[in-house]
Each structure stands twice: as C-alpha cells, then as structure tokens.
Amino acid sequence: MSQTLGRSSAAGSDAEPLAAATPLWAGLAAVYRAQLSRVRVSRVPLLFVAVFQSVGIMILMRGVVDTGSDSAREAVVAGSSVLVVAFVALNLLAQHFGALRAANALDYYLTLPVRPAAVVLGIAAAYASFTLPGAVVTAVIGALMFQLPLANLWALLLVVPLSGAALAGVGAVCGLLSPRQELATLLGQLGMSAALLLGIIPADRMPMVVEWGRDVLPSSYGVDAFIATYGTPDWAAFGADLAVCAAVGVAMLSLATWAFRRTARG
C-alpha cells in the first residue's frame, strides 16, 4: 500500500505533495492505546462475566464428563480457558465493529492517513490483550478443580494471543461485513456458542459431522494446543496447532482489512 501511495504523490506535475502516511506501527500503537483506554472502564466487569461463564461451565461439566479420563478433563479446562478469548475477541469485537459501522464511525479512520490494517490490528489487540488474565484465572481454577498440572501454564502466553488473533479476525470480519448491526451481534454470539459447544466437549465423544465443525473453527486449534501441554507435552502438536491459529489469524485479519476498506466506499 505504501508503494502505491508513493506513486500517486508523483501524479500530475503540479499536484500538491501528499503529507506523510502514518507508519503501520505508529498507527497501530496509537489505535491500541486509545482503544485500551476506551475498554478500561468496561474491562473488569466484562472479564468477570467471561471468567464466571467459563468457571460455571467447568462446574457443570464436572458432573457430565468422565473425570477418570485425562483427555476429557484436559479438554474441559483448555476449552473453558480459550472460551474467555472467544467471548471477548469474537463476540465483543464483532459487536464493536458492527456498532462502529452503523454509526458511520469508520469514516474517522478512513479519512486519516493510517493503514486499515493498523486500525483493525490495534482494535483487535486491545480487546485480545485484556483476555489474558481471564484465561489464566480460568486455567488455574480449572487445573485445581480437575487435578491437572500447572507447570505449563506459560503456554497461555502463546495460546491466548494467537488464538486471539484468529478469533479477533473472525469477529472483525463478521462485524464489518454484516449489512446490519443486529446481524453482527448475532454472528458474534453464534460464533461464541460454537466455540463453547465444540471447544469444551471432548473431541473423541463427538459425532463425525460435529467433528468437522470443530475442525473449521479456529478456536479448536487454540484448545488443542493447550491440551498438548498437559501430561507428557507434545510440543510438535503444540507448535502445529499454534501455526494454524497464526495462519488463520493472518488470513482473517487480512480479510478484515479488506472489509474495512470496502465498507467505506458503498
């Protein structure tokens, strides 16, 4: 993008030179900082809701799953931890972008020399970054409830940002492409419900069709990566699952960037 803009400044011999475009990182940092201050007020209650929901689900699942099976317990705890990320990154972000679009608020960014990617990433990063404490708290409570080791908890430092990127990308695309705000909210909630159902029920108990659904949902790879760190860690699987998250994140955030530009010029 910077290259095409560079060429346009040479257009027409007596055209006014264009002011500098904002570098990607500077734009991202400015948007991130502003968004972080924006969500500061609502951060604590939202995190509380997200953690409360995940812990509630773990309590429910304790009566349902076979607590003798390692894989079942790991699936429930990992799924519930990543659910915190899905709640914020997918559901809330879809709502936020839907609202921005409905209020013509994207005009503000579109008339500043900042790259759409910086705006999408900055907003997504602000939402995703406040999910980390929630995911950690949920994982700790889960580990205590289901007698799982706490040794590899640091893995969340990778799992949360990467699955956060993938889910935030999906959320942003839903919010930006929905023709109506209510639809954006609905899609965000549907996505979160899917993450809830498909992420928490242990994979080996599912019918074939549901398992395919699980395979297309990016949060599943975050869940699987976290599961891989329990017991005897399988670092190859961990890396592979995170790579999928990262790839989906890049693809979805690129799509969101495209959607962001497209929205404006209707």
Partner: peptide, 24 residues
C-alpha cells in the same frame, strides 16, 4: 492536482475531515 475518483486515499493525506457523527 490529484484525481480523487481514481485515488481516494490521497484525500486522507491532504484533508482534515469533520464528519457529522463523532462515533469513533
């Protein structure tokens, strides 16, 4: 000197715009 129909993004580097809504 810039054609805004062909290159709408040139506007962001020359113009400050105040829209009717302040949403963002």
């Amino acid at each position: 000197g810039h054609d805004l129909v062909k290159r709408p993004d040139a506007a962001a580097r020359l113009v400050a715009y105040l829209g009717q809504d302040s949403g963002a």
